[in-house]
Design a binder for these strands. Structure first.
Lengths: 203, 203
DNA sequence: GTTTTTTGTGAGCAATCGTTCAACTACGGA
DNA sequence: TCCGTAGTTGAACGATTGCTCACAAAAAAC
C-alpha cells in the first residue's frame, strides 16, 4: 500500500550520525542534514517528527552499531582481555582515514546538557562501555592477569572516566605521544584498585 | 575624553563565562548574553568585535581566574600534594550551590572542534592543569609519597585525562558514588607508572 | 483504470540568528 | 559653554533557523 520509501533508513542514520559527531547537535542545520543524507527535510520529518527525533535515533544507532560493536570487538570477544582493553584505547586514538575525531557519546554528554531527552541514550552508551570493561576485567582476574582482590566495579568506572577523558584530549588535538601515554597509564593503573581500599576518607 | 563605560568588563566576562559554560557557544544567543550581562549587544561589539571575540575573552578569563585559581589552590599551594590532588578531583564533583555542572574548558574542547580560534585557549588551560599535576607529583615524590622512580610527566597526563573524563561523567549526570569511585581510582593509580615501563609495545 | 494510500518536494512560513548603525547621551578639554 | 569624543541604545538589516504544507509521484487495492 502506498509508495515505497526511496531512502534507506540505516544509511540516512549513518550519515546523520557522522554529521552530528562532527558538528554537534546545534552545529548541524537541517540544510546540512539534507545535504549529508540526500533526503528532503519533509521526508525526514515524516519519519523522525523533529530534529530532536532524528538526533535521538542517530544516537541510538551509534550506541547500537558503533559503541556496542567496539565493546564486543575489543572487550568481550578477545581471548586476551588486557590486550583487548589496550586496543580499545588505542583504536580511539588512531581514527585512521576518518577526518573528524571524537565520540558522539562524549560530545553529546557534554553538549546536550540542555536537552534532557538525550540523557538516557548517553547513559545507555556509557553503561555499555563500563559493562564491557567490567567483563574484560573479570576475565583477566580469573586468568591471573590482575590481583585476585581487584575491585572490578570501581576499576571499570575508573577506565570509563579515563576513556572519556582520552576522547576529550583527542578532540582537543593533543599530540599523539601524549595520548599513547594516557593509554600506557590506563594499562599500568589496572591492578592498583583492591577491594580493601586504604584511602576511603571522602565525604 | 568621551563617555565613561557603564559596565564592568570583569563582571560581564564572569556572566558570559557562566552562560557559555551552561549552554555552550552555539546554545547562547546574543539575546541571552544581553539578558545575562545586562549589556546591549552594540556595546559588547564595540569592545569584543564579535561573538567569537567575546567567547575567546570569556575563555581566557576562565583560564586566568577559575582554572589557574583552582590549580594554585589545590595543586601548587597545599603542603600535602597528594591530598591536594584528591581535593582537586572532589571539588569538581561537589559543585555546591552552582546549578550548572561542567567545565568550560572541557566543553569547549569538545564543542568548538569547528572553531579553530579557540584551540590555543583550550591548550593553555589543559597545560595549566597538567603542569599543576606535574608540580604536585614532583613534590610528592620528593617527600616519599610516591615511588622514587615515578614517571611524573606520564602520570600528569594520565591524571589530566582522568580529570577531563570525570568532568564528562559529571555533566552526563552519573551518580555521585560513581564519581567518587573515579577519584579513588585516580589516587590509587598514582605510583603505578614507573620510568622503566614494562609494556611499551604500542605502534 | 480508478481509487486509495503513502512518499517526495518546491516553496515558503514565522522566528531567530549575528551584526550594524544612526540618533542620542554623557563626559573632558578648550 | 560649546565642541569633540566615546559609550549607549532602539530599530532593524539580511541571512538562516526549524518546520510545514499543498501538490506531484508512485505503488497497492479494488
Amino acid at each position: 500500500m502506498g509508495r515505497k520509501q526511496l531512502w534507506d533508513q540505516d544509511e540516512v542514520l549513518a550519515s546523520a550520525m557522522r554529521l552530528f559527531r562532527h558538528r554537534g547537535y546545534l552545529g548541524a542545520s537541517l540544510r546540512d542534514i539534507e545535504e549529508a543524507t540526500g533526503v528532503h527535510p519533509g521526508s525526514l520529518y515524516r519519519t523522525f517528527q523533529s530534529k530532536d527525533g532524528l538526533f535521538r535515533a542517530a544516537l541510538d544507532a551509534y550506541n547500537e552499531r558503533v559503541v556496542r560493536g567496539r565493546v564486543r570487538a575489543h572487550l568481550l570477544e578477545p581471548a586476551d582481555p588486557l590486550a583487548g582493553i589496550r586496543s580499545f584505547f588505542t583504536s580511539a586514538i588512531e581514527t585512521g582515514a576518518e577526518p573528524d575525531p571524537g565520540c558522539l557519546l562524549t560530545n553529546t554528554a557534554v553538549e546536550s546538557f540542555t536537552l534532557p531527552q538525550t540523557a538516557t541514550g548517553v547513559h545507555h552508551g556509557l553503561a555499555a562501555i563500563e559493562g564491557g570493561f567490567a567483563d574484560a576485567l573479570t576475565r583477566a582476574r580469573r586468568c591471573g592477569g590482575t590481583p585476585p582482590d581487584l575491585d572490578v566495579a570501581t576499576t571499570a568506572a575508573h577506565l570509563l572516566a579515563l576513556y572519556q577523558g582520552l576522547l576529550v584530549l583527542v578532540r582537543a588535538g593533543l599530540p599523539r605521544t601524549t595520548l599513547h601515554g594516557v593509554t600506557d597509564g590506563a594499562m599500568a593503573s589496572i591492578g592498583s584498585l583492591r577491594t580493601s581500599r586504604k584511602q576511603d576518607d571522602h565525604e
